[in-house]
Design a binder for these strands. Sequence first.
DNA 1: TCAAAAAATGACGATGTGTCAATAATGGAA
DNA 2: TTCCATTATTGACACATCGTCATTTTTTGA
Lengths: 238, 238
Amino acid sequence: MVTIGRKEREKQEREAKILQLARGMLSDAGYLGLSMDRIATQMEYSKGTIYQHFQNKEEIILALANEALEKRLEMFEIAATWSGASCSRDRMAAIGAAAERFVEKYPQHFGVEQIVRSASIWEKTSEERRHIMHTCEGRCMQIVGGIVRDGLAHGDLELPASRSAEDVVFGMWSLNFGAYTIVTSSESLEEIGILNPIAALRHNQNLMLDGYNWRPLYNEKNYDATMDQVKTEVFGDE
Amino acid sequence: MVTIGRKEREKQEREAKILQLARGMLSDAGYLGLSMDRIATQMEYSKGTIYQHFQNKEEIILALANEALEKRLEMFEIAATWSGASCSRDRMAAIGAAAERFVEKYPQHFGVEQIVRSASIWEKTSEERRHIMHTCEGRCMQIVGGIVRDGLAHGDLELPASRSAEDVVFGMWSLNFGAYTIVTSSESLEEIGILNPIAALRHNQNLMLDGYNWRPLYNEKNYDATMDQVKTEVFGDE
DNA sequence: TCAAAAAATGACGATGTGTCAATAATGGAA
DNA sequence: TTCCATTATTGACACATCGTCATTTTTTGA
């Protein structure tokens, strides 16, 4: 049926529009800035109609988080399969570049990721959407974990008996998420002596990978150049 | 005047009671769970009286954050001056142990630190309390930074020209904050292969410090034992 | 004992969430 | 085309919450 197609399409479009408005409100003024009434007003629909798309406010936030994670996933996938990589550690550097680009290019997405991790919204959300989120997170993990396992298989790095490939990913993840959280939430880092946090983050990540003996080591190869290259060549579109 | 003393004391006690109730609500159900009405009811005072102590909800949260930071600061100070340290890196390990113990012992405090970093509460809060927060943060930085500078002075580690002592602290801070945020917000880390995140965190931190060539290196000295020692000997009180 | 100062109260306006009975629009059968 | 069943939309409503402030109660000190 043609009409069913149109209806379905309109529904999708409205849903996208809701999420777009919600994203703006959320990044402007946080959890409280996101108002169902204001979404309804700006959509020129009544509140009841909005509630037919999303059971509640938390579902909207979780939907935004899923969009964010999907975008991150997409960028990680591109980075992981970057054809310019000449070793497993290059691919890891490409992931780092993708993570940087993700925050720079979609700061709102990153903001949602942060909100979801701190605000207690989980009780009110649907099992289905929580599952999507969980799956996305797992797939992100798989991609980066895959690079580590490739490196292990090629003998590019070694792990102590007590550590798994996932622990390496956890390290990168922690370092990256922590650093960006601090950067975005702490004004005047300069004042306390952190002049270039992103450069410091890169450095610290590389030192950690060096710790796993992931060859070529940081002093053997300029991974900063690699990351810059990936950022411009692969994710350079403004 | 005796009466002035009593009044002042009562005011302090009430304030402490408010914060205590608020802390419970906040950690139970997040930002929304903290209700001024419910605080008033449970205090057996009217709402207006609560508002004589704190201008608004955000001020309460910021006050809680200051308590948390002060506690962290106190523990870091104890760790930094630990008499059992036999080298600068031992003292750094002691800071790591303090950070671990802080989260274990005061999970609510850590929860507040997270909320403050993500919820946009800053606009409504007073300059004064923001300043306290900023100062605490700076002093935490100073303590850990001091250990790094001591290490540099003793020739225990070296820095590349482009990195400052604060960048090392930033690395430890990011790694620790990121790891604990992920751990507390992501159920079923086991499912994605991270079996012992805290052990992984320790390992990753040590690898990072090794990257700065902070001697004795991780494979030369068992810093896990050092941290366990600090945790039981210095912060062992249950 | 009493009046001025200080403290406490809670009704109130504003804003927000989520519901649901009532209304409008739509689609297809006769 | 007409008409009715189904679906979509509406917005008033009940309820919760924040922060205010005129009013009431308590305290203080002369």
